[in-house]
Simulated assay, not measured.
Amino acid sequence: MWSDLAPVGRSASSGGYFRQPFASAERELAAWFVEQAEARGLRLESDATGNVVAWWDAGAGAGVLTGSHLDSVLDGGAYDGPLGVVSALAAVDALRARGFAPQRPLGVSVFVEEEGSRFGLACLGSRLASGALTWSAAAGLRDRDGVALADVVEGGGPALLEGVGAFVELHVEQGRDLVDRDAPVGVASEIWPHGRYRFDFAGEANHAGTTRMADRRDPMLTYAMTALAANKQARLADQRATFGRLEVTPNGTNAVPSHVTAWLDARCSSEAALASLVDAVTRQAAERAGRDGTTLTVTPESVSGAVAFGLDLGLDVPVIPTAAGHDAGILAAAGIPTAMLFVRNPSGVSHSPAETAEPADCLAGVEALADVLERLAS
């Protein structure tokens, strides 16, 4: 299965992946998942947004769900998302090879637009599937080319998560905790609170050569100081702050910009720490804007609170926190008992072509996931 996925959406120059939602590479993977589910005799159920669940209909009662996503960040790694889908299908194979007869329905899910790389809202599919976000609120979201989500998918029901009693997501680790512990598999204790905030800096366009420095109202200067302030505040508090996306108008080499839009990704160990960090960065940015003759508007685009995973998996493996967001966090917040498994990443690098995992560790992850599903579906 892994060799099937490896070439799809891969850049020949960087080796990274471009699997943006509802575009050709991601749709090819979605079709591949349907083929894999049908080959296993699983019953497919989907909603009008593109979320899919392949059900092993067995037993009765609340279903046990596993799975992840198939989309990627821009120039992303191979494992973030797809490892959880492939491992879920492999775990079904492993359970059948054991002769296991589930006493509850078992499903493998694929949620769309987990990364937010196209429409700007992370975990978009699981937010819609869980009811955390309404279709009317999501329909107007637009990608960088101005295409609205409603122009791409119809949106709406059915409610895929009705009757789901537990969700387990397997994911490649996005850090080095398991490397330091010399452990192939771990369990998540929690997801840190995190948010995305749009900073709009407005100034006055002018000529780069003829405008005296004292006469400028340059929003790029305000942004530059803000990026440095975010770095300093996060380091002082031992938290996370990143400006990773920037749009400049008119974006000319010989022009002072009139407008700069930058997106802050902030992640903290507590909701109070997150609020404090964003407030500190915003305050310093506003003070600098006053000195630069620019203006600042800050808009929270998505903010997720802390998620604690309390589902007992019965595994004797390390328990570690994560500062990355996941569909599991959305389902947990919706009241579904949820857990996460992590597979060791030797590089410790994620959201990058350098992201990796060893086959032996991936197989250990499959066995651990199969053990968990057997426990939950018994």
Rank of each mutant, 00 (worst) to 15 (best):
P193C: 09
F342Q: 12
V349S: 01
V307G: 09
C268F: 13
D371K: 14
P318E: 12
Y17N: 11
Q284Y: 01
A241S: 09
G77M: 09
E271L: 14
Y17A: 07
R127A: 12
D200Q: 07
D47I: 05
A30T: 12
L274I: 07
S68A: 13
G314E: 06
A308Y: 11
R104H: 05
D371A: 15
Q239M: 10
P21T: 12
R142Q: 13
A237N: 08
A31S: 15
G156Q: 13
C362S: 03
T249Q: 07
R212A: 15
A183Y: 06
A208E: 02
S276L: 10
R267N: 11
S3A: 13
T222L: 00
A31K: 12
A132K: 00
R196H: 12
D145S: 12
I336Y: 13
V172P: 00
L373H: 12
A205G: 07
S14C: 06
E367W: 03
A323T: 10
T210P: 09
A280P: 01
V278C: 09
E113C: 04
A286R: 14
S269C: 12
E367L: 13
V278G: 07
L246F: 01
A159P: 06
D182S: 14
G186E: 00
W263L: 09
E38T: 04
A237Y: 12
E38N: 01
G107V: 02
L83R: 08
W55N: 00
A285N: 06
L341A: 13
F199E: 02
R40M: 06
L160N: 06
N206L: 02
A54M: 02
F33L: 13
A333R: 14
G329C: 10
A306N: 10
A101H: 05
T226V: 01
T66K: 11
L178A: 06
M1S: 11
A137V: 00
V112A: 13
S130M: 07
M220H: 03
T261H: 02
A90K: 11
Y79S: 04
S13A: 15
G59Y: 10
A364H: 06
A183N: 09
L29R: 07
A227W: 00
A202P: 02
F18I: 04
A285K: 00
E26V: 02
D47N: 02
A224S: 15
V187P: 02
G290N: 01
A368V: 09
L246P: 02
A368W: 07
S87E: 12
L74P: 08
R10S: 07
Q36S: 08
A323C: 11
R43A: 14
E154Y: 01
A306L: 15
G140L: 00
A39S: 08
G329D: 10
Q284V: 06
T295R: 08
M213S: 13
L170Q: 11
G16Q: 03
A30S: 15
V317T: 13
R240Y: 14
A30I: 05
S189F: 09
R217D: 02
V343T: 10
V278D: 08
L74N: 08
V317C: 13
Q174Y: 01
H207L: 07
L315T: 07
A339I: 11
L313Y: 13
A229K: 01
A62Y: 00
C268S: 15
R144I: 04
A188K: 08
P102F: 01
A12Q: 11
D143H: 09
